[in-house]
Simulated scan of single mutants.
Amino acid sequence: MPQQLSMFAVRVSAPEGLQYVPDFISPEVEQDLIAAIRTLPLQPFQFGHFEGKRRVASFGYRYDYSLRRLELADPIPSWLAGVIAEIESFGGPTTEIGQVLCTEYDVGVGIGWHRDKPHFDRVFGLSLGSSCKFRFRKSNGPSWERFTLDAEPRSLYMMSGASRRIWEHSIPAVEATRYSITFRTMLDAGAGVSRPRSARS
């Protein structure tokens, strides 16, 4: 892990609250994370009765689209403890990761326009294996205001503020197999769901 993180200067037109750090992890750590994700029982993403092409595994919490609520998931695995510590250090003293999503994007797979569920607060994304176009849009009268971030392998992005709450984001079909790990803090860890065990337990 790098001891000092150099912040990438995102263009002025970037959504407020979006931060980006290139080379957040080393190539060796990246390969270890990819190898660990490949051992997970990844399942096609379930959106109600629909099945997405990307494959995922949730930890801490998962969102049940049929029940429209958070459910407890398996504890955050210990092999993520080091990365989580670095992300929490980057996010500041109030940062506590409560949910993790590991995703595999095969060639030709992307994700449509959306915002993360309101149960979550800040969102950190770690790109692995290949780059992607991380697209943002928000309504501006009859048109859309748009921004695209080139998310390189080993980079970290953080969404907070307007970039998290107002802008939607999506990823077009990737040209090479890509993995990502999404780390989320909780806005309301209550909502009738007890706090899960984590990698630090």
Rank of each mutant, 00 (worst) to 15 (best):
R184Y: 04
T95Y: 14
M1N: 06
L18A: 07
D74S: 14
F24C: 00
M7Y: 11
R55G: 03
R68C: 07
I97T: 08
I37N: 00
G110C: 03
E145P: 02
T39D: 15
T103S: 11
G125P: 05
Y105D: 01
A81L: 06
S163E: 08
P77R: 04
P77E: 05
Q46Y: 06
Y63N: 05
S170A: 14
C132Y: 03
M158A: 09
P142W: 04
E168S: 12
T103W: 01
P15A: 02
V123N: 00
P75F: 13
S131T: 09
V107F: 02
N140E: 08
L72E: 11
Y61M: 03
A199W: 01
S130V: 02
R115V: 13
P172W: 07
S89E: 15
C132F: 03
S194F: 12
S143G: 10
L42C: 12
P27I: 08
R68E: 12
Q3E: 15
V193P: 09
L128G: 01
D74G: 11
A189G: 09
V100K: 03
I87G: 00
F50C: 13
F45T: 00
G112M: 07
S131A: 14
A73V: 11
Y63P: 04
D32S: 14
A176C: 07
F59P: 04
R184K: 09
D188C: 12
E16W: 06
A85H: 08
G192I: 09
V10N: 02
L149E: 13
G82D: 11
F120A: 08
D106R: 14
S198T: 15
I37P: 02
V174D: 02
V174Q: 03
S78H: 14
A151P: 03
S26C: 04
L42F: 13
T177Q: 05
V21K: 02
A191V: 13
I181M: 09
L156F: 07
K133H: 09
C102I: 04
G52H: 02
D116S: 09
V123W: 01
G161M: 08
A173N: 13
R195G: 06
V12Y: 11
V100A: 12
Y65K: 09
R184F: 05
T185M: 10
A57C: 15
P142S: 07
R69M: 11
D121E: 11
R178H: 05
W113P: 01
P93C: 07
R54L: 12
F136K: 00
P93F: 08
L72M: 14
I171A: 00
L70T: 05
A14F: 05
P27R: 06
F8A: 08
K138F: 04
F124M: 12
I87Q: 01
Q3K: 14
Q4W: 12
S130E: 03
D32V: 13
D150Y: 04
F8R: 04
S194V: 14
W79Q: 06
S66H: 15
K53G: 14
E71H: 11
P153Y: 00
K117M: 14
S13K: 10
V109W: 00
P77L: 06
V123I: 14
G110W: 00
P196E: 07
D106Y: 05
G48C: 05
S127H: 02
T148H: 10
P2V: 06
A176P: 01
L40S: 10
L67S: 15
G108E: 12
A162D: 04
W144A: 13
E30T: 03
E104N: 00
W113T: 04
R195H: 10
R11M: 14
G108I: 07
G108M: 08
P196R: 04
E145S: 07
A81G: 09
